[in-house]
Each structure stands twice: as C-alpha cells, then as structure tokens.
Computed example of a mutant assay.
Amino acid sequence: MNAPTFLINDSKKTQELALDHCLSNSFELGGDWTCAPVQPFKQQFSDVLQEEKIETIYFTEGKGFRWDSGTMAFILSCQRLCQRFNCTLDVQQLPDDIQSLLRLATSVPPNQESNKKHMDYFRLFRQGLGWIKDWLQFSGEVGLSVQKMIRGRSDARWSDGINFLHQAGPSAVPIVTLLSFLVGMILAYLGTVQLRQFGVEVYVANLVGLGMVREMGALMTGIIMAGRTGASYAAQLGTMQVNEEVDALTTLGIRPVDYLVLPRMLALIVAMPLLTVYSNILGMLGGAVVAVSMDIAPRMYYFQLSQSFSMADLTTGVVKSVVFGGLIGFAGCHAGLRCGRSSAAVGQATMAAVVTAIVYLVVADAVLNILYFHLGI
C-alpha cells in the first residue's frame, strides 16, 4: 500500500514530499523534507501502529531524500511512538548523519519527575548535616578572624570599614525614620483601643515607650537592616564570587573572611545600636502624634513616657541590637561567600540571606527575652 503524496507549494518551484509505505513494516522517506510540515505523516505512522501489531519498523532512504532538523524531530517522535506500542524502529538504512544524531539524542533518557509518595528522609538528613557543617566551618573562620583582629594581625582593610559603616548607618536613616514612626503610631492606636475601655488612655505612653525600647525598636530595625544591608552584602559578595574576585584574593594569600566579612560585620554591629536608639525616639514621637489626637496633653504624654521605662530597659534593647547586627552581617556574608557561579545563584544567595537573617533575629529575640525573664531584667 502506497502512502499519499504531500505537495509543498514554493514560490520558486513545487517540491514533492513522499512517505511511501512500501511494505507492512517498511517506510521509505523520499523527496525534500527541509522546512516541510510532517504532522500528517506522524498521524499516518501512528494509525499504522494502532491498526497493525508490528514488532519492527524499517525506515529507508528514498529517491532525492533531503532532510533537516525538523526531519530529525519527526524520526525521534516516531521512535517514541514505537516504544509506546512495544515496537522497534530500525533506521540502519537512513544516512549515517541521521543515525549519529539519533544516537546522540537518545543517549540520555528523558527527565522524568519521580512520583514518590514518601519523602527521601535520608537525603534531607544529609542536606541538613551538610548545612550544619558549612555553618560551623564559617563560624570558625569568623572566630579566627576576630582573634587575628584582636592580636593586630588581621588582613582587613579598615579604610573600607568607613564605607560599610556609612552604608549600614546614615544611608539607612530615611527608611528607619519612616517605619519607626509608623510602628509607634500603630502601637499607640492598638493601645488606645484597649485602654479606652478602662478610661486610662493616658497609659498609652507607657505602652509605646516600653514596647519600643525593649522590643519593637531593635526588632524592627533588625528586620529593616536584614532586608536592606544583609541582602546588599550577599549580592556584593555573590557577584565577587561569580567574577572570581574571591578566588583572586585567596591566590594572593588574603583570607576572604578577614578582608570581606569582618569589616562588614563590625560596621553593622556599630551601626545597629545607634539606629535602634534613633528608632526608639521616632517611635515615641509617632505615639505622641496619636496620643495628642486622642486629647491627651503633650505634657502628660511626656510625663508618662518618662516614667514608663528605665535605663535597664533601654540597655536590653541596645544589647539586642548588637546581637542582631552581628547575626545580620553573618547571614549576609555567609550567603554571599557560598554563592554559586551564575547570576541566578546571586539571586538565590540574596533571598537566602534575607530569610536566614530574619530567622536568626526571631530566634535570638526569643532566646534573649527568656534570658531577661530568668535574670529578672
């Protein structure tokens, strides 16, 4: 049974594309297949496989056969159809180039996602151990760098620390100002709604003052710096990793942790307490705006505010900010130095730095609050 002839109308000439079904299990590919639609022949091939039970199908080269990448795609799809119907496709009589390309295309099996219902807990366990090992290794490198700094043998260039301090401090003032002022207003509104039930709205000053100095000032500033400066550190070091600048430093005998990590971490540790105190002041001013709008006299608000917290309360928030600064710098630099060698890896490192820093902040905040509670502070 001969296969139908398919005509391709070209502006210059008419070319004939033939797929001849010579025998029950042999197809002859003839004519010019370059830039030709092959969907009808694929359907014809599929119909033959469905109608007849064939163990082996042969593809042979016909008269004037010319082919291109589309022809290869057609042959590959025919081979996959044969696999579906438990049939073998023989292409030994086609040109050698087609056979070589087909072997290359089928040398690697197609990527199939596993449909395992159960998670590979052993793989997750190994990944967890690898992460812990990497974290401990980086912590040890930072500890050694701090020890070398104390002994005056660090490779750090402290002139860069001024730039990092400016990046972590004055450059962050606008965003810290806005968010701290709004956080103070939010605390005041929430407190007023509850205190109004008892007729003691004036104590909203105590709520705002104590909440800002002990908790919200340090925590909100830490979250802001994690999304701003921590992500910046990860992107900077990740880009240096992609450009092989970190490898160049290592080749020159300069430890990257000393030269790149330590100045950044110290800049954040110095800037965070100052920003936290500034955030506390802005939060109290935001609470004052709400209190005045609730018919609380500014003098009364100031008096209640001065009685709401002590120097010990202020110190607890400052200590938190120092810890938060070190954790943010640690997370950002760790993610940057462990970055891959592509632009996508830089984005992943930046995301990992922000997420990890926020997790560090929440965990550290909980631990410090429990510690303060047991110490009676």
Score class of each variant (00 low, 15 high):
Gly143Pro: 00
Ile175Lys: 08
Leu81Trp: 00
Met149Gly: 10
Arg151Cys: 08
Val173Leu: 05
Asp365Pro: 05
Ile8Gly: 04
Ala267Met: 06
Trp131Gln: 12
Ser306Leu: 14
Ile98Met: 02
Phe164Glu: 08
Leu17Phe: 09
Leu282His: 05
Ala291Asn: 03
Leu262Asp: 01
Arg341Cys: 13
Pro256Ala: 07
Ile186Asp: 04
Cys82Phe: 03
Ile296Val: 13
Leu262Ser: 08
Ile358Tyr: 06
Trp131Leu: 14
Tyr189Lys: 07
Gln50Tyr: 13
Gly217Leu: 11
Met300Arg: 14
Val204His: 08
Pro298Thr: 04
Thr356His: 04
Leu207Lys: 02
Met311Asp: 03
Ser154Phe: 08
Arg264Ser: 08
Arg255Phe: 10
Ala205Val: 01
Arg84Glu: 07
Leu210Asn: 02
Gly286Met: 00
Ser343His: 07
Gly128Tyr: 12
Arg341Val: 07
Pro298Cys: 00
Ala18Lys: 13
Gln79Asp: 07
Met284Cys: 14
Pro174Ile: 10
Arg214Ser: 08
Pro298Ile: 02
Ala345Val: 01
Ser11Lys: 12
Gly347Gln: 05
Lys42Thr: 14
Gly336Thr: 01
Ser342Ile: 09
Lys320Gly: 00
Ala235Met: 08
Gly209Pro: 15
Gly140Arg: 06
Leu124Cys: 12
Gly332Thr: 06
Ala105His: 10
Pro4Gln: 01
Ile254Cys: 01
Leu210Val: 11
Leu23His: 02
Met225Ala: 01
Met300Phe: 13
Met311Tyr: 09
Gly286Lys: 00
Gly287Ser: 06
Pro95Ser: 02
Val204Glu: 03
Leu314Lys: 04
Gly70Pro: 03
Glu113Pro: 09
Gln197Ala: 15
Ile269Asp: 01
Leu182Gln: 04
Val204Ser: 04
